[in-house]
Computed example of a mutant assay.
Amino acid sequence: MQTSFQRIVTGIATFLLTVVIAVTGYVSAGWTLLDAIYMVVITIFGVGYGEVQPLTSTTLKVFTILVIIAGVLSVAYTVSGFVQLITEGEIRKLLNVKRMNKDIELLDEHVIICGFGRIGQMVARQLKVAHQPFVVLDNDPDRIELAREQGYLMYLGNATDEMNLEAVQIQKAKVLATVLPNDAANVFITLTAREMNPNLVILARGEIPSTEKKLRLAGANHVVLPATISAARMAHLITNPAAVDFLAQPDGQAGLNELLAELDIQIQEVVIEDSLVGGTIGDVEVRGKGTFIIVALRRTDGEVIVHPGRSLYLAKGDTLMLMGHQGDMPNFAQQAAMRREMRYRGARLRR
Rank of each mutant, 00 (worst) to 15 (best):
A173I: 01
I144L: 12
E162P: 00
A124M: 03
V179Y: 12
R118F: 12
P141I: 02
Q126P: 03
V111D: 07
E166Y: 13
Q121W: 12
I68T: 15
L94Q: 15
V75N: 06
V111C: 06
G120I: 01
A130H: 10
R194N: 10
L85Y: 14
L73S: 12
T87M: 14
R118C: 05
N96S: 14
A130I: 02
G157Q: 03
L137F: 05
E105W: 04
V129N: 08
Q132W: 08
K93L: 13
E51M: 00
L137E: 05
V175R: 09
E109P: 00
D161N: 08
G151D: 07
L127K: 01
C114E: 11
R92Q: 14
I170N: 04
M154W: 13
E109C: 06
V129M: 14
V175F: 12
K172M: 08
C114H: 04
E51D: 13
I170L: 10
I91M: 15
A167F: 04
I68R: 09
L156T: 01
A173D: 07
F63L: 00
N101H: 14
L66D: 05
K93T: 14
Q171M: 11
M100I: 08
T78G: 08
V175H: 11
L55M: 00
A76F: 14
Q132V: 13
Q53A: 01
I68V: 14
I91G: 06
L60W: 02
G81F: 06
A147Q: 03
F82Q: 06
A130L: 14
D138H: 00
E166L: 10
F63M: 00
L95N: 15
R194M: 06
S74G: 03
F63W: 02
E90N: 12
R148P: 04
I91C: 07
I189P: 01
L85K: 07
T190M: 06
K174M: 12
L60F: 02
T178D: 06
E166T: 03
T78K: 07
A70H: 04
